[in-house]
Amino acid sequence: MTLQLIEMPLSLSALHSWAGQRNVGYGLFDEGAVLHHILGEVFGPAVLQPFRLLVAPRARTGTLYAYSTVAAEDLRAEAAPVLGPSEAGVLSLDALRSIARPETTWREGMRLGFDLKCRPVVRIASPLKGKDIRFAKGAELDAFLAESMRNDHARSREDVYFDWLAARLAPVADLEREASRLHQFRRVRSLRRGRQVEGPDVVIHGSLTVCDPQGFARLLARGVGRHRSYGYGMLLLRPPQRKA
């Protein structure tokens, strides 16, 4: 089915109220987890995934973007019978829009810019021990932390994250490192399956070159990395960045 880029306004105050009413997060407001729950209740599990909420500074509303195989008209028709008053206060179904992104949109060698919010984590294959901390085999770690604990002379955070991203774009697209930058890094506490976890919250602005148009279409639909159902991994496409 044809991939659709979805756009929908969202009330931030109503989203916070909805989370409080449902006790989502048990006192921790995890924006990704709250959106995961409300989008699943209104549209069905993973119908709008991956997704990204963009909010301007000091704004009271945000704009939700997502990829889906369902167009706006059908999304509204399917959500209308189950939408409750509280959900209607959060999501503006009347203003929901979509635009098709068929596979024929992409060409081999096409350069594209992107804005990506991601969670660059890895599962470690063997235990890791630092000065004051130890991680068991299979633990999920910040990719930069994992490399730093293995090597005395660790590379920069940006270099490690670019390696992580390049591996997940390959072989359908090549990351253009000279036209990419680490725009934001912070550590956040999140709620996953009833427990709190901590990890990196990263935004990368960059450019890529499409190598496999059909594979690239599947990558957009799937998203990049882990935690894709919680607001990470959506490639928002832009004009390509200038190379440094």
Rank of each mutant, 00 (worst) to 15 (best):
M1P: 08
E7G: 13
E7Q: 14
P9Q: 12
L15W: 04
A19S: 11
G20H: 10
Q21E: 10
N23F: 06
F29D: 14
L35S: 14
H36L: 06
V42I: 15
L48W: 11
F51K: 04
F51A: 07
R52P: 00
L54H: 07
A59H: 08
G62N: 05
L64I: 12
V70A: 05
A72Q: 13
R76Y: 04
R76N: 11
A79Y: 04
P81E: 15
P81S: 14
L83I: 12
P85V: 01
S86L: 12
G89D: 05
L93K: 03
L93M: 12
T104V: 09
R107M: 01
E108W: 00
L112Q: 08
F114W: 07
V121P: 02
R123Q: 12
P127T: 11
K129H: 05
K129Y: 02
G130K: 05
F135K: 10
E140L: 04
A143K: 11
A146H: 01
R150P: 02
H153R: 09
A154D: 07
A154C: 11
R157Y: 06
D159P: 03
D159M: 02
L165F: 13
A167C: 02
P171D: 10
R177P: 04
E178G: 12
R181S: 13
R181N: 13
L182E: 15
Q184F: 15
V188W: 14
R189A: 14
R189E: 14
R192D: 03
R195C: 08
R195Q: 15
V197K: 08
E198T: 13
L208H: 11
L208I: 11
D212H: 02
Q214K: 11
L219Q: 01
A221M: 07
R222F: 04
V224Y: 02
R226V: 01
Y230V: 13
G231P: 01
G233Q: 06
L235G: 02
R238Y: 09
Q241K: 12
